[in-house]
């Protein structure tokens, strides 16, 4: 199967590969997996006091399209608010990377990963608020 140049670029030079401290209260971690192909993806965001995503890191074990989808997404979410980041649709990722229909699920994985990371961050913040009030 032919990959688009954009996929190849992200695959060969993935942006923002790495890990953050998942116990840091400013870090949200999203982990998802695709049972169809066994791909696993970890996407992490660091959120500042204004609720803006300052940094994002990912680690994906999977095919080129899955790596490219998560790499592109980490670039997109930096500087965005949580709501803006949560509104990114997998179709936008698929369109940007020109993914063929059989690889659309890779972009779904990336969308679910950022949503999971945002949820994790919000849960942590709520937990901290409850602790402060107690």
């Amino acid at each position: 199967m032919a990959y688009s140049n954009k996929v190849i670029d992200h695959y060969e030079n993935p942006r923002n590969v790495g890990a953050m401290d998942k116990d840091d209260s400013h870090v949200g971690t999203g982990m998802v997996g695709a049972p169809a192909c066994g791909d696993v993806m970890r996407l992490q965001i660091k959120v500042n006091e204004e609720g803006v995503i300052e940094d994002a890191k990912f680690k994906t074990y999977g095919c080129g399209s899955a790596i490219a989808s998560s790499s592109l997404l980490t670039e997109w979410v930096k500087g965005k608010s949580l709501d803006e980041a949560a509104s990114i649709k997998n179709t936008e990722i698929a369109e940007e990377l020109e993914l063929p229909p059989v690889k659309i699920h890779c972009s779904v994985l990336a969308e679910d990963a950022i949503k999971a990371a945002i949820n994790d961050y919000k849960e942590k913040q709520n937990g901290a608020d409850v602790a402060k009030r107690a």
Binding site: M31, A34, A36, Y61, H105, V108, L109, D112, A113, A116
Partner: peptide
């Protein structure tokens, strides 16, 4: 399989 992406976090962590 293409939409069920939410597996147990502990399981996914172990897989990674």
């Amino acid at each position: 399989d293409e939409r069920d992406t939410h597996l147990k976090p502990a399981f996914l962590m172990e897989q990674i």
